[in-house]
């Protein structure tokens, strides 16, 4: 059920972005800050205005200003929904070795977890899993696709 509503949201967003990108194809290059993805493609929402994911630079797990903003929104949302538990999935792009990427994904997910905890979310509500490069959201091989795959995604568990 949850999946369906999520899916609908994704589709809406997809339509919106398709409409947008139809206006300006040049927008794509504006979706990267350094090599951190700043666009809205692939992003889903935990609730209205609460994006589910943050993006990282190559080989990095530090949170950008925008990521921290996203995570603060998630923290606010989680404080309002006290019974909700989450899993944070950490991911890497395909441009690294498999085992190192597993560690990197774990580190990214924990960076997000730590930030949520500093905003008062109990660590007990948060589990972490790394998928390394095993679950790309964009299967293309391009700097844009890789930037969308370097991510940590907050997923509701219950």
């Amino acid at each position: 059920m949850k999946f369906n509503t999520n899916l609908r949201k994704v589709l809406l967003i997809l339509f919106a972005t398709i409409a947008l990108s139809a206006c300006s194809t040049a927008k794509k290059s504006g979706d990267l800050d350094g090599d951190v993805y700043t666009g809205r493609d692939t992003v889903e929402f935990l609730a209205k205005g609460v994006p589910d994911r943050v993006f990282f630079a190559t080989n990095k797990s530090s949170l950008t200003t925008k990521s921290r903003e996203t995570l603060r929104k998630q923290a606010t949302f989680l404080r309002k929904n006290k019974s909700l538990n989450i899993t944070i999935e950490g991911h890497a792009d395909e441009r690294g070795t498999r085992e190192f990427n597993l560690a990197l994904g774990e580190r990214r997910a924990n960076a997000a977890k730590d930030y949520l905890m500093t905003y008062g979310i109990s660590g007990k509500r948060i589990s972490v899993i790394s998928y390394g490069k095993e679950r790309p959201v964009n299967t293309e091989s391009s700097p844009l696709a890789w930037s969308q795959n370097r991510r940590s995604v907050t997923v509701k568990v219950n």
């Binding site: 797990s61 085992e99 597993l102 560690a103 774990e106 580190r107 997910a109 924990n110 960076a111 977890k113 730590d114 790394s130």
Partner: peptide, 8 residues
């Protein structure tokens, strides 16, 4: 490797 709190 064992990953604990983001550190492997």
């Amino acid at each position: 490797s064992f990953a604990k709190d983001g550190n492997s």
